[in-house]
């Protein structure tokens, strides 16, 4: 997929575990895992807002666009 989720990079930078982040933003660890492993098909703005607030970053730090290889 063209959109890459760099959540694990930001989590490593902020030194926060997946369980702690899931608890902080109020989603299940299973859903956070879906997001981290590039399996998610959509992200709600409210979730993105909570992630940015918890990690003190911008949406662009988490999401990245990479053109598909042909």
């Amino acid at each position: 997929m063209a959109i890459i989720v760099n959540l694990d990079v930001m989590m490593a930078k902020r030194k926060i575990s997946a369980g702690d982040l899931a608890a902080k933003i109020g989603i299940t660890p299973a859903n956070l895992s879906i997001l981290k492993n590039q399996k998610a098909k959509a992200v709600r703005f409210s979730t993105l807002n909570d992630i940015c607030q918890a990690l003190d970053c911008q949406p662009g730090d988490i999401l990245e666009y990479q053109p598909d290889e042909k």
């Binding site: 859903n31 879906i34 997001l35 399996k39 998610a40 098909k41 959509a42 992200v43 709600r44 979730t47």
Partner: peptide, 8 residues
Amino acid sequence: RSELDLTV
């Protein structure tokens, strides 16, 4: 439904 299941 599968898309909704994978919406975080």
